[in-house]
Write a protein that binds this DNA or RNA. Structure first.
Lengths: 237, 237
DNA sequence: GGACTGAATTGAACAACGTTCATTTACACC
DNA sequence: GGTGTAAATGAACGTTGTTCAATTCAGTCC
């Protein structure tokens, strides 16, 4: 059993085993399957394709992704991809799902490392910005990709979005326990949208040439000033 | 002289004269030009194409725009379009430039109608959201369109972005005259990014099903809480 | 060992895309 | 009417996502 087989059988995620070696048909033989002609099961092809797409997006951006590129980088042809994914949107949605999982992991980690309870929201904000800066293309793909208007976003995907969002709500509740659920929800949306806006405009260079540390300052400014108003209850009029 | 010739000679903008009648080769004859074969001068074709692209984006979204669509909707073929625009990016950039102008107009108007000086920033925020909601596709195109990485954004375009941004800075200066230029600039970026984030996430449906009036509430919350901190000078720690 | 079977895989085909440019068209002038 | 020339065309090229008849081959049976 070679290292990639090992990686696969351990259910190591795609980015991790990609670090081990290039995913390609020739480097990824199944061992004990009853496949007819195939080197790999559907699930294996699926995993390889997702990993390959992730690398392409990470290195060259979502805009350059194409079905033929993914197929050839795993040593198969386009046709095979369509046996495993309904279409390209399907594939991209799965890649983005993985990205949302990675984001969630980063956020929970940021929260764990923030010793002061009061700074939890700030840790989340900086964690979000940090993730976006560390993986700009993969993070960007989540927002650049658009499902056709007549295709609803699947529930499993919405759930992955929600899990990160709920972290913010939880921190805000801890911070302002007297506030109603509605007020917390609104504050979380306002604040999170705000942080997201800083990331979007900052990373796409639409704020002028802002250095990355000043993006951190913007997030800091947004959160601390907002919380000053939100926790004191005084309204600006 | 028919109504469209009139509209054109008055330099009425494309959206306005599109409201008068469909822009098409057959409806847009130049009168006193020395054109050889042409019905229209380069500038006229240019104006017609921009107007047509604007309508396509407005009605069907930026993703559906194509050179052939624009060409056929003005009664010419693709080739002609490339005599007038360097490429599609060029065309889209001009449409987006017009959108930024329209946004600026809306913002200055919002400012003029806000009688209380203190609420100027809020008026700008709501004006921005209002524009985005009124023209979601045209506004979206400004952010969905991406120039190739090796092509720098032209200066005239950056200037159009800046003109709206400076309104926010001016209002913040009026509101907190004691703050340094740097602090004002940072606050303007943080606040504007925040409002932008609410618009982006709200209009692309990524905040769940938020009603439009609650987007207004989010903008209100973001701005008033931020300003509470910013104008009082107290920092949340 | 050779024929058979059926799943796995292919790659040609389609329509639409941005872009180019040799060719055609129609006007102004002589 | 002939000729020069600018305007406009549309076929062509290399992409794209997507489909599906055709091919290939592992496993089974005789």
């Amino acid at each position: 059993m070679n290292s990639v087989q090992f990686a696969y059988s351990m259910h190591i995620n795609s980015v991790q085993y990609l670090a081990i070696l290039c995913v390609h048909r020739s480097h990824f033989r199944a061992v004990d399957d009853m496949a007819r002609r195939s080197d790999h099961s559907r699930d294996e092809i699926r995993a390889m394709a997702l990993a390959a797409a992730e690398v392409i997006i990470d290195e060259q951006g979502y805009a350059t992704l194409s079905a033929r590129k993914v197929a050839s980088s795993i040593g198969y042809t386009v046709g095979t991809l369509y046996l495993v994914f309904r279409n390209l949107d399907d594939l991209v949605l799965q890649v983005n799902g993985r990205t949302l999982d990675a984001l969630f992991a980063r956020l929970t980690e940021a929260l764990a490392h923030s010793h002061s309870e009061r700074l939890g929201v700030t840790a989340l904000g900086q964690g979000y910005l940090g993730f976006a800066m560390a993986h700009p293309h993969r993070w960007g793909a989540v927002f650049e990709h658009q499902l056709p208007t007549d295709v609803p976003t699947p529930d499993w995907y919405l759930a992955k979005v929600a899990q990160s969002f709920e972290l913010v709500e939880a921190e805000l509740t801890r911070l302002a326990p007297a506030r109603s659920e509605t007020e917390i929800a609104q504050a979380a949306r306002a604040l999170w949208s705000g942080v997201h806006g800083v990331c979007i405009l900052g990373l796409t260079g639409r704020l002028g040439n802002v250095a990355s540390d000043s993006l951190e300052a913007l997030v800091e400014s947004l959160i601390s000033n907002y919380l000053a108003g939100f926790t004191s209850g005084t309204v600006f009029r």
